[in-house]
Computed example of a mutant assay.
Amino acid sequence: MSWNEPGGGNNSRDPWGGGNQGPPDLDEALKKLQQRLGGLFGGSKGGGGGGGGASASFFIVLLLGAAIVWALMGLYQIDEQERAVVLRFGKYHSTARPGLQWNPPLIDEVIRVNTTKVRAASFREIMLTQDENIVEVKMSVQYIIDDVKNYVLQVREPENSLQQAAKSALRHVVGGMTMDLVLTEGRTRIATEVDDRLQDYLTSYTTGIRLSAVNVDDSKPPSQVQAAFDDVIKAREDEERVKNEAQSYANGIVPEARGQAQRQIEEASAYREQVIAKAEGEADRFSNLLAAYRKAPVVTRERLYLDAVQNVLANTSKIMVDVEGGNNVMYLPLDKLGTSTTPTRGGAPMSINTSNIRELTDAVTEQLRRDAAAQQARRGGR
C-alpha cells in the first residue's frame, strides 16, 4: 500500500501534511506564500484574513510589473551615425556603439551625440591689421564630433569654446597681415592658417571637435570708414590705370626708340666704314699720283691743275678768263652753255655736259695762249 492511499495507516508520512487529502493544491501553496509575504510586510499570518492576502497579492503583482517596466526602460537603440556616452551614478562608464543597447535606468545616464552631422558656426569680428588699419571679417567654421567622451565630459560648452578659439586664431592671423592682403587675395591664406591654428587649439582643449572647413565669407572695412575706404580704392584703381597706360606707352615707345638707336648705330657703323674706305682710297690715289708725278712731273702737274679748275668751274655758272700778257678778259656764260643745245653734224640737238664744257675750256685756253704768244712775238720783232 502506498503512503497516500485512503485508509492507510501511514498518514503521518504525507510530505504535504494533508492527512487523507490528495495531491497538494496550488491555491493552498499560493496562499501560504502570500501569508509568509504578508508576515514580512506586516500582514496577518492567519489563514482567515482574506483581505490581507488580497492586498499582498496586489502588491506582488505591482512589484513585478514595476520590475518589468524598469527593465524595458533600459532598452534603447543607437543609430549608425550616433555614439552614446554612458554615465553610471554620474561617472563615465563606457561609450555605446550603434545597435540595440540596455543600461539599467535611473542608474545609468545615456547621452547620445550625432558624430556624422556637419555642424557650422559663423561670426563677424572687427580687428586691427599689421599696418594698423581696421577691417571687418566674417568667417564660418564647419566641424564634426570626433571624440564623444571629450565632447561631453571634458568641456562644459564646446560650441562656446569653439567660438572663442576661432576668434582668437582669426585675430592672430589677421594681425600679422596688411589690410590690402586681407581685403584682396589673402582670404585663402587666412582660412588655411586659421584652420591649422584653430585645430591645434581644439586638440589642446580636448574638446573632441574636428574641423571640416574654415571659410572667410567676407572681408571689408567697417561701415564707419567705408566712404574713406571707397576713396582709397578709387585712388588705387586710378593708380593702376595710370600705371597700365604708362606701361602701354612704354611698350610702344621703347621698341621704337630701340629701333632708332639701332638704326643710328648702323648708320654710324656705315659712315665709319665709308670714311675709312674713302681715306684708304684717297691714300691709295695719292700714292698712285705720287708715283705718276715722279715719272712725269709736268704732265701730272698740268693734269692736277685741270682737275682743280674743273671742280671749281663745276660749281659756278660764270667764268672770267685772264690771259697773261693780254688786255682782254673773256667772260664765259656757263649757265647758258649748260642749258643750251648745239646742233651736231646730223642736225640733231645735243646738250652740253661737263666733258663738253671741259673741252671747250681747253680749247679757249689754248687759243688764248696762242694769241698771247703771237702778240708777244710781235712785240719782240719790233
Rank of each mutant, 00 (worst) to 15 (best):
G38W: 00
M179Q: 14
E280R: 06
V85T: 10
L290G: 09
W3V: 12
L37R: 06
A71R: 04
A227I: 09
D195A: 15
T339R: 13
S168Y: 02
R263W: 07
L360D: 04
N215F: 09
Q375S: 08
A374E: 13
I78S: 05
K149M: 10
E5P: 02
G74R: 00
V137S: 03
R241Q: 15
L40C: 03
T361F: 12
F286N: 09
P255E: 03
R303W: 00
V299R: 12
T342L: 15
P98G: 03
E80K: 07
W16G: 04
G22F: 03
F89N: 15
E159I: 09
A363L: 13
V323R: 11
N160C: 00
P23L: 08
M320K: 14
K45N: 08
R370M: 13
A166M: 11
M139Q: 12
Y151A: 06
Y249L: 09
I107C: 04
M320W: 11
N244T: 10
E324Q: 07
V194M: 05
A374K: 10
Y92S: 04
L198S: 12
A308I: 00
N315S: 15
S2L: 09
R187C: 05
L313N: 07
G259N: 15
E273M: 00
P297R: 09
Q224W: 04
I60C: 05
D217T: 04
P349S: 12
Q226P: 02
E280G: 00
G9P: 14
G9C: 10
K31M: 05
N215L: 08
I265A: 15
S161K: 11
V275N: 05
D147A: 01
K32C: 05
Q367W: 07
E359W: 09
E125V: 11
G7M: 07
S140Q: 10
F123V: 03
K220D: 03
A56Q: 13
G381N: 09
V194E: 10
Y271A: 13
N356H: 15
S212H: 08
V152R: 05
E240T: 06
A66W: 09
D231M: 13
P105D: 02
D147K: 03
M350C: 05
A169C: 14
R189P: 00
Q35T: 11
M1Q: 07
D218C: 01
L289P: 01
T316D: 09
N327Q: 14
Q262L: 11
S55C: 04
H93G: 01
M127A: 02
A235H: 11
I190H: 02
V329P: 04
S219H: 01
D238E: 15
A291I: 12
N133E: 15
R294C: 01
Y271Q: 08
Q226G: 07
Q163E: 10
P24Y: 00
R285C: 00
K220L: 08
R189I: 01
D371E: 15
A279F: 03
S287I: 14
D108Y: 07
L62I: 02
K45A: 06
A235T: 10
